[in-house]
Simulated scan of single mutants.
Amino acid sequence: MSTASYALADSATMVRRNLMRLVRYPSLTVLLIGMPVVFLLLFVYVFGGTLGAGLGGASGGRAEYVNYVTPAIILMTITSAIQGTTIAVATDMTEGIVDRFRTMAIARVSVLTGHVVGSLVQTVLAIAAVIGVALLIGFRPSADLGGWLALTGVLVLMAFAFIWLSVAFGLASKTIESSSNVGLPLVLLPFLSSGFVPTDSMPTVLRWFAEYQPFTPLIETIRGLLMGTPLGSSLVISLGWCAVIAGGAYLWSKTLFNRESTR
């Protein structure tokens, strides 16, 4: 077998290891789905009537608002995966399992690849569950088949980028306890975007921040693909942010992992 074949086989083994963890601890996936669903129900049924009236759409109520807020909840599902992945990586790094892996004849890249692919599978399942709940409470997307396929690709790319960032966070964390909090800002940033209210309703300074932070174009891209509205420049900006986050996080992760290997 070639070096690439060995690396692929080792990566498949590590992916299987992480998927087995999801099967043995289903509560991790339930928690990943639970928080976005709670936020979805809260904003639709508690705030939706009032916030939906300000959107200026045909219905101007909860039916209007569930269509508006669901893209933000979908992105929050992706960012919620950061905490679990960060903790899993930090646990492996601090409890000695990675040291044992390094004594084996396995490809070094497979250790991180297993975390990334395993978390990606978990995140995709969580997104599907959240969209299912949204459909049950009145979400009515107008995307055609092409729109859904494009949305799937964009969501996988977004999840891939943020999962690599969570791997870097886990490698940078000194303890498991500290790793549980490092990704919290990424869970909160969607609230300071166009995800829950239009940016033109915000004060000037907050509006400027909301329009130029990465989560606004990401949410607008999801919203445009789901609702069949013009994407403008949001798709290109979103792809750029995903490339920067994924590339930067991969290089950061590689540097941290190699540094730990030399100790």
Rank of each mutant, 00 (worst) to 15 (best):
G224K: 02
V156R: 01
P198Q: 05
L218H: 07
S178P: 11
V167P: 02
K174D: 15
W164A: 03
S193K: 02
L206R: 10
L192G: 07
S179M: 03
I219G: 00
A168G: 13
W208I: 09
L186Q: 00
G183F: 01
I219R: 00
L192A: 11
T152D: 03
G224F: 00
T204H: 13
V197M: 14
T204G: 14
L149D: 09
G153P: 01
I176F: 09
S193Y: 07
M158E: 09
P230C: 12
L165Y: 07
G224E: 06
G195M: 00
F162V: 06
L165N: 01
P185K: 07
A210D: 00
V187Q: 05
L206I: 13
L171T: 10
G224D: 05
V154S: 05
W164E: 07
Q213K: 08
M202P: 03
L157Q: 10
G183E: 00
S178C: 12
S178H: 14
G153Y: 06
S233F: 11
V167G: 01
P198T: 06
L186F: 09
L171N: 08
P190Q: 11
V197S: 08
I163N: 06
R207D: 03
R223E: 02
M227D: 13
S179A: 14
S201K: 14
F215I: 11
L184K: 10
R223Q: 11
I222A: 02
L165I: 04
A210L: 06
T152H: 05
L186V: 08
P217L: 10
G228S: 13
S193I: 06
A172C: 15
A172K: 12
D200R: 13
G153H: 07
A159S: 07
N181S: 15
L151E: 02
L171D: 06
T216R: 01
P185N: 08
L218G: 07
L184F: 13
A210Y: 00
E220C: 11
L184T: 13
T175D: 07
T216H: 04
V205A: 14
A150G: 07
Y212S: 13
P190I: 09
L171V: 12
L189N: 03
P217G: 08
F169E: 00
L151D: 00
L226N: 03
L225H: 01
S179T: 10
L157M: 14
P214Q: 08
F162C: 05
L171R: 02
L189F: 12
L189G: 03
M158K: 00
A172L: 14
N181R: 15
L184C: 08
M158R: 03
G232P: 09
L184G: 09
V187W: 02
V167R: 01
G232S: 11
S166A: 15
P185Y: 09
